[in-house]
Simulated scan of single mutants.
Amino acid sequence: MSVDHWHFPRPVLAQEYIASFERGLSAARGLFARRRMGKTEFLCKDLIPAAESAGYQAAYINLWDNQDDPGSALVAALQQAASPKGVSKVLADLRRPVRKLKAGARLPGLGEGTLEADLGTEPGAPIPLLTQAMQQLDKKRKKLLLVIDEAQVLAGKKNSVFAHALRAALDIRKDFIKVIFAGSSETTLRSMFARPSEPFYNWAGLEPFQLLGYEFVQAMVHKVNEVTRKPLSMEDATHAFQELRNTPEFFRRFLNQYLANPLAGAASALDTVKQQVYGDQDFERQWQELLPADRAVLEMIAMGGKDLFGSEARTRMAAILGLDEPVKRSTPQNALSRLMNKNLVTRLEHGRYQFEDESFADWVRHRDT
C-alpha cells in the first residue's frame, strides 16, 4: 500500500476511538465536521488501520457517492467484509444495471479491497440481502468496525425503511459490530439521533470532529522545507491557514502552489488559491439554482444576521427582494428549511444559523465586490 507523504497521522486520536469501543460502554459514535476538514482522511488513513491493528476487520462506505441507493451500497460493503467472494452474487441479486456504487472494506491479511460497481434506479431488495450479510458476519463472529461516512444521507425519508432495518440488525450485534457515523451536516445528524421518530434515535452520541490546527501546519511546513530551497516560514503558513478558514484541503492547495513557484512567494500562492477556492467551487451555479428568498436568507446569514424572524430582519429581507412591505415570518422559515435540506446551512441553536461551507459564505459576502 502506497504511503501518502502529505498525510498528517493522528494515532492518538484514532486510539481514543478504538479504546472507547473496547471499554464496551458504547457500540456507536457520531462525529461531524464540515467538508474538506480532514474527516474522511482520518477515518480511512488513521482510524481504520488502528482498528485493524486492534483485531477488527473494517468496512468503509461513503454515502455521498451513493445517495440514490445507500441501502444497496451499505449491503455491498457489509457483504464484502463478510465474504469478499460473494459480492458479485449480491449485485446480481439486487438486479441492478450498472451506474455507480463505491464501497470499501479492508480485510486483515488481504490489504485493502475496494468495490466499484454501478447501481441503477430499478428497485432492488437490500433488506433481505442485509439480513444475509449479517448472518454471514454472525458465523465469523469477528469484530467489525463499520464506518459510515456522510451518514446523514440515511436520514432521507425514502431511506427510512432500510434505516430501521439497519438499526435492528446492528442492535442485536453491538457486542462485535461497532459503528462510526460521520457526516458534514450537523443539523441532520442531530436530527437522526435526537428525534424520537428517527430510526437511530438515541443510538449514538454526537460530537464535533477534532479539527487540525497548529501542529498540522507545523508538520506540513517541515515537509515543504524538505523539498524546496526557499523555505516557507511558519508565520506565512499560519497566516495562509487562517485566511483559508483553517481548511486542510485548501491549505494543501496553498502548499502545492507555493512549491510550484516558490520564488513568487507565499502571498502570491495564497492569492492564487483564494481565487481558486472562491471562483472554482461552482458557487455561482448553486446560487442561481436557489429561490430569491433563499438567496436573501443566505446574504443575511453571511453578513452576520442572527434574528431572521424579527421585524427588522423581515424588512431587510423585503428590501433584498425588492418588496415594499416586510415579508411574513413564514418566508424566512420556509427558506431556512430548504437551505438546511440542501445542507447549505446548519442551525447552531435557536435563532442562530451558519453556512455548512465557510467558503460559500465568503463567496456570498464578496460576490458583488
Results as ranks from 00 to 15, higher is better:
Thr272Pro: 03
Leu101Glu: 07
Glu112Asn: 14
Val327Asn: 05
Gln15Cys: 00
Gly55His: 03
Asn334Met: 04
Leu145Arg: 02
Pro292Gln: 06
Asn334Ile: 04
Ala117Phe: 13
Asp69Ile: 03
Pro326His: 02
Asp368Lys: 12
Asp46Phe: 01
Tyr17Val: 15
Asp362Gln: 13
Asp282Gln: 14
Gln218Arg: 14
Ala76Arg: 00
Pro231Gly: 05
Ile48Val: 15
Ala240Gln: 10
Asp362Met: 04
Arg314Trp: 07
Val273His: 07
Ala133Pro: 05
Glu198Gln: 15
Val224Gly: 02
Asn62Lys: 01
Gly120Leu: 06
Ala269Thr: 05
Ser359Leu: 11
Ala14Arg: 08
Val227Leu: 14
Asn261Ser: 12
Ala204Met: 02
Asn225Gln: 07
Lys140Pro: 10
Trp287Lys: 12
His366Gln: 11
Lys306Thr: 15
Asn202Lys: 14
Gln132Asn: 11
Val364Cys: 08
Gln354Tyr: 06
Leu78Gln: 03
Tyr17Ser: 01
Trp203His: 12
Tyr201Arg: 05
Leu189Lys: 06
Lys142His: 13
Phe209Val: 06
Pro208Trp: 03
Leu308Ile: 05
Ala269Ser: 12
Thr369Gln: 14
Asp68Pro: 00
Pro262Asp: 05
Asp175Ala: 14
Leu25Trp: 09
Val224Ala: 13
Arg295Ser: 10
Ala54Gly: 06
Gly55Thr: 05
Lys102Tyr: 12
Thr114Trp: 06
Tyr353Phe: 15
Ala117Gln: 12
Ala302Lys: 06
Gly156Glu: 15
Lys85Arg: 14
Arg338Tyr: 00
Val98Phe: 01
Glu249Ala: 14
Gly120Ile: 10
Ala361Gln: 14
Ala169Glu: 13
Arg95Ala: 13
Thr131Cys: 04
Ala33Asn: 07
Leu144His: 09
Gln15Arg: 11
Arg295Asp: 11
Gln79Asn: 04
Ile320Lys: 09
Glu235Arg: 12
Arg106Ile: 12
Arg252Met: 15
Gly213Tyr: 00
Phe176Pro: 01
Ala81Gln: 06
Gln218Asp: 11
Glu52Tyr: 00
Leu323Tyr: 10
Gly205Met: 09
Arg314Leu: 09
Lys89Pro: 00
Glu349Asp: 08
Leu43His: 01
Asp357Trp: 09
Ser268Ala: 13
Ala155Asn: 12
Leu91Ser: 01
Ser72Gly: 14
